[in-house]
């Protein structure tokens, strides 16, 4: 194997990892906001949707990039994975369609339809999240479909829903004020506990059902380093638990901290999960080197990616800066 044939798949796996992680964090918070949408309070719904309005579209683009990179860099893995995830992927797409269009229709129709579109938005967000949780669970279980695996995917569905609700409520704590912010803090407290239980469960189940994962983690002296991941994560949970109990503070101080903390938890969990399966792209079946595209194709797209991705990051930051501060009523008309 030549050096480029060794390194190119690794680089693309890293890029794909960044895209998936960016998606989980960014669309995670706006899906979470969708899940939390209170059906009994219209003005809070308006504010919540306003808080994600300028961003959701670009957030979803990270999913297209992640799937795109899988397609570009590891085409055979792309078909293998989507072969197993056919039905949940379709359901996720329907969910994404529902929430994407509901977002736009709700603002443009007469008041009597608005409630129905809000329900569609909430349902679409929940369906998308559950489908993603299901897919994650199936992936971790190596696409097994026995009872044990089914139970685990169920757990994964709830775990991802809790995690998205957590990051969604953390977003709302940062972007809103007053009653809604207090409500978001209560949501965050609940979601934090459920997410914690979910992550612990995955940490226990994953190495038990996957011998490969166990061997990966519990090898001396590696175990001494990699255990840092769960330890830091645990500390973040404890820190957020105490912080959330003390919010809101006067002058709204620390309202941005939960979002940063939860982002940290997302990053660490993702690294832990990625580490468990590296270098397999289809668990225990296909490695990144076996699935990789031709080097000449990878190099062609890499050149572009190295130029374009920093540009994307720059204007994404620019957009977030423009819409910084508390969410105000959405007005484009």
């Amino acid at each position: 194997m030549t050096a480029e044939m060794y390194w190119l798949p690794i680089i693309f796996m890293a890029l794909m990892g960044v895209a998936i992680l960016a998606y989980a964090i960014l669309d995670g918070y706006d899906l979470g906001v969708g899940i939390l949408l209170p059906l009994n309070n219209e003005s809070q719904r308006d504010t919540m949707i306003a808080s994600i309005g300028p961003f959701w579209d670009a957030n979803e683009t990270w999913l297209v990039l992640a799937v795109g990179l899988l397609l570009i860099a590891f085409p055979s893995a792309h078909s293998a994975v989507l072969y197993h995830l056919y039905i949940p992927a379709v359901i996720m797409l329907i969910g994404l369609i529902m929430r994407g269009v509901a977002f736009d229709f709700r603002a443009k129709v007469a008041a009597d339809y608005k409630y129905a579109w809000d329900c569609t938005f909430k349902a679409g967000s929940l369906i998308t999240t559950l489908a993603q949780g299901y897919m994650l669970g199936l992936y971790v279980m190596g696409f097994r479909t026995d009872l044990e695996a089914q139970l685990f995917t169920l757990l994964s569905c709830f775990g991802v829903t809790a995690a998205y609700s957590l990051i969604g409520s953390a977003w709302l704590i940062m972007k809103t004020e007053g009653e809604l912010q207090k409500r978001a803090i209560r949501w965050a407290r609940t979601a934090l506990k459920i997410t914690f239980v979910g992550i612990i469960a995955v940490c226990i189940v994953n190495p038990i059902v996957n011998q490969g994962v166990f061997d990966k983690w519990f090898v001396y002296p590696r175990v001494m380093f990699v255990l840092l991941i769960p330890i830091v994560t645990l500390n973040l949970f404890v820190f957020l638990y105490f912080l959330l109990n003390r919010l809101p503070r006067v002058n709204d101080s620390y309202s941005w901290v939960p979002f940063v903390g939860v982002t940290g938890i997302f990053i660490l969990s993702f690294i832990g999960l990625g580490f468990s399966f590296y270098p397999y792209i289809v668990p225990w079946n296909v490695t990144i080197w076996e699935a990789a595209s031709a080097p000449e194709s990878l190099k062609f797209i890499l050149v572009g990616a190295l130029i374009v991705v920093p540009t994307i990051l720059m204007y994404t930051i620019f957009a977030y800066r423009i819409f910084r501060g508390k969410a105000t009523e959405l007005k484009y008309y």
Binding site: P54, D57, A58, T61, V64, Y315, T316, I322
Partner: peptide
């Protein structure tokens, strides 16, 4: 995709 999605936010809500 990123170009249009990101600046769409500014185009619609940034006025």
């Amino acid at each position: 995709f990123f170009l249009e999605a990101t600046f769409l936010g500014i185009m619609l809500f940034g006025i």
